[in-house]
Write a protein that binds this DNA or RNA. Structure first.
Lengths: 236, 236
DNA sequence: CTTGTCGGATCGTTGAACAATCCTCTACCT
DNA sequence: AGGTAGAGGATTGTTCAACGATCCGACAAG
């Protein structure tokens, strides 16, 4: 039996190759950025971070490169890397992409029943976080929901695109003041979409999703524009 | 008049910071890969390339990392970097993404008339290349056509996604034997799509595009699977 | 207030060194 | 003869130190 081309073990490969120092550093930095320890606009010095983490500059630069590719950092020549500061235009572009891709995924679904296990798990995750008053958790669950939605298309490249786009969107969330007002309404709407898909009503789900994204875009853009204008955190 | 906070020049900032040795090396290698000078499967030796280009190993490795992130190169531990050899699954995934995104772009167009200048230029480019018997040029023009198509959505992130995906697809084109048979039929179909869009017939254009992509996927996957099985170039 | 200049700090790139790994060839044993 | 173990060379992985280039802030001159 020839397994050379088989994909049975491809899932496990992620656990094998995952011991690169640069990736672990990137994980640490990504978490720090996600929790706001490094706010948008902050500069990440090679020397201080490299010294604190005990890694060489080359390794650190590779980690920076990984995060730059994810658009979490921006690189300016001879100036260093900075935590990305989203412009309002970026929020628009992110939602334009989301609407294009996510609606196309729903439209392109085959025959029901659909595999909604991942979606159901994300909805449950969000509702549990809401009960715990953990609105950052709700935000994370919300992102998971949409990642699972895109995963229904079964395309690795599309998955990766949306993973990056949704990670960017999280940068905008960190700047707004009232995460509950921003995320709570979508708990119910996620469940509605899940129910529609579970019932096999593709067109209905697409309509719900389109309205969802349009509403969300308006709200996030407004909240973000206000937060950026406010003197809250002009520079890190 | 106070221009200090104005954004009139912000578009030009991209031209300022754009020079780094590693990026320039990456540009060179990317072009070489695109034109087939480095065929899929070829190993890129650090010493020979670094010596030929006159850059140090560290800089060259940085360029390698950039291209690895773009999926044009693959990195094998302690063995070096190789020009990516696409699997047939990759071709499927690429076309799945293309169909999802490109059709969604056409469907999401607003009211006619549409700005088809870029598309028309790409069609003209392809027809000129065909007259010159330059089938690699036809392939390039074809890729331009679809990039321009996606650009109609007006989303920088979507543009970048498709730029990467189409660059990957070019890797498959280099493996097949008869580029003319592969690319010639799409000259006419590109023009048909252009004409439909010029006439404002969005639905018709979407239908043409969907059929186009399904046909192309079948043909490319078949030609590619055959080429990969053949003893043409087992290893670089 | 603007302009020019200087110095410190940080990044970009190089070159070297050494460890780790892979590939090939040879010698050996059964 | 066939297969195996090991030596040796070649290549990559990783780190470090150094130097030049660039940016930024401060200070002085106009």
């Amino acid at each position: 039996m020839d397994l050379s081309g088989a994909g049975g073990l491809t899932d496990d490969r992620a656990l094998l190759g995952r011991t690169s120092t640069a990736e672990r550093v990137a994980d640490i930095l990504r978490t720090r950025i996600a929790e706001g320890y490094f706010p948008p606009g902050a500069r990440l010095s090679e020397e201080s971070i490299g010294g604190a983490l005990g890694v060489s500059r080359n390794t650190l630069r590779e980690a920076f490169r990984l995060l730059t590719h994810e658009r979490l950092l921006v690189h300016e020549l001879n100036r260093g890397v900075f935590v990305r500061v989203l412009a309002v235009d970026d929020v628009d572009d992110i939602y334009r992409t989301r609407r294009l891709v996510e609606c196309a995924v729903v439209r392109g679904l085959g025959q029901p029943p659909f595999d909604v296990d991942g979606l159901a798990a994300a909805v449950a995750e969000g509702e549990a976080a809401a009960r715990a008053d953990d609105w950052t958790g709700v935000s994370t669950a919300n992102i998971h929901f949409h990642r699972e939605l895109v995963a229904l298309a079964g395309s690795a490249r599309t998955d990766e695109l949306m993973r990056g786009v949704l990670a960017e969107l999280r940068l905008a969330f960190h700047v707004v003041d009232d995460p509950r007002a921003l995320h709570e309404p979508y708990l119910r709407r996620n469940r509605e979409i899940l129910d529609a898909l579970r019932a096999g009503e593709r067109a209905s789900a697409e309509r719900l999703l389109a309205r969802y994204l349009d509403d969300s875009r308006t709200r996030v853009a407004a909240a973000y524009a206000q937060a950026v204008d406010d003197p809250a955190a002009p520079r890190g």
